[in-house]
């Protein structure tokens, strides 16, 4: 892309800058569009499972529902409670949304199509997603209200609990690929199952942790059945209780952007990313980005399906699952995978 801009007579540096900014906007703006549509999809899937019709008034099939909602919140009044810390109160949604956007910088959409092809991409994702907890904690604290405060505490404990097992699961994947770079991890899966399928998840050694990662990613993004941070029967709307207008919407957008990110990570780490599921030449005619989006949508459907059908966990059950089930198993799996690799690949 830099070369194309350079052909307009710009110097290399200027062309690079323009190309980078265009690239960033090409990620950020479609992402926001995707979030709007995915919210619509979420509601539709949820409605369908509950035998309802879901949004169907605004636009054909209700397709414009999210945009109407967006316009509505945009024109609303931003209420800052008198007891709140004004600065922190306004910074919290900024952090949440910024972090949700930032993580996408290292996601490879196709061979060579990635904004920042850094060699520690997975580490970057871990680092950025753990920053997400700050938005929640700050909003809970700054609101100076009971329900957001409890919600923020719960959210912090929940997110860090599952981050631990996610870390260990990722190590197993990294061990297999031998790299943190998400493109390398994707390419390492090319035809890795009997030369036919391209998916870590079909490897018997990695399948169990792929399931654990799917569940952990639901917990990490506080999606149902792990949405204890906004359990409406106990905590009203959780840490968003005091928010209104676009500040409220930013949490909403950030949350869904994180959900899509987790779906993308599931697809990239365990199910071949942009590679076609079967390593067969004609399938490569379809652009890789289509395969990636198809996988993301599949995972999002699973997320919605679970949300619509599984009842909410209790907090003690949630913590038990994280600390007493996932942590020991993922720890054991690191030993198992590394030992297997030492025996078969490195010795």
């Amino acid at each position: 892309m830099t070369a194309w801009f350079a052909s307009w007579g710009l110097t290399y540096e200027a062309a690079w800058l323009v190309a980078t900014i265009v690239g960033i906007l090409a990620i950020a703006l479609p992402l926001m569009l995707a979030v709007a549509m995915i919210i619509y999809a979420d509601r539709k899937i949820w409605a369908a499972i509950a035998l309802r019709r879901g949004p169907n008034v605004v636009g054909p099939f209700g397709l414009l529902q999210s945009f109407a909602d967006g316009l509505k919140v945009f024109l609303q009044e931003t209420i800052i409670p008198s007891g709140a810390n004004r600065g922190l109160f306004l910074i919290a949604p900024i952090i949440t949304f910024t972090v949700a956007l930032m993580a996408w910088a290292v996601i490879p959409f196709q061979a060579g199509v990635v904004l920042a092809n850094i060699n520690v991409g997975l580490l970057y994702i871990l680092a950025i997603s753990s920053l997400g907890v700050y938005g929640v904690v700050i909003s809970g604290w700054a609101s100076n209200s009971k329900y957001p405060f409890f919600s923020a505490l719960r959210a912090a404990a929940q997110m860090i609990s599952y981050e631990v097992s996610i870390g260990f699961i990722l190590i197993s994947v990294v061990l297999y690929a031998g790299s943190f770079n998400l493109s390398v991890i994707t390419l390492a899966q090319k035809g890795n199952i009997l030369g036919i399928f391209s998916a870590n998840g079909l490897n018997p050694l990695l399948f169990p942790i792929s399931v654990m990662f799917l569940i952990s990613s639901m917990a990490e993004t506080a999606r149902a059945p792990f949405d204890l941070t906004e359990a409406e029967s106990e905590l009203v709307a959780g840490y968003q209780t005091e928010y209104s207008s676009m500040s409220f919407a930013l949490f909403w957008l950030g949350e869904y952007a994180n959900v899509i990110l987790m779906c993308a990570l599931n697809a990239i780490l365990f199910w071949g990313g942009w590679l076609p599921p079967v390593d067969w030449a004609p399938l490569y005619a379809v652009p890789g980005i289509i395969w990636l989006f198809a996988k993301i949508l599949l995972f999002f459907f699973i997320f919605s399906w679970v949300k619509a059908t599984v009842p909410r966990y209790r907090y003690d059950q949630l913590m038990r699952l994280g600390w007493k089930v996932f942590l020991p198993i993922s720890l054991f799996w690191v030993c198992l995978v590394s030992g297997w690799l030492m025996l078969t690949r490195y010795s």
Binding site: G23, A28, F97
Partner: peptide, 28 residues
Amino acid sequence: SQYLPILIFLGIAVGLSALFVFLPMGVS
């Protein structure tokens, strides 16, 4: 040099988020 886009991204993301927070306050 691969990290520079991330820095630029950070600037744009913060700007975008801040716009979303403060613009509605002005509009209202």
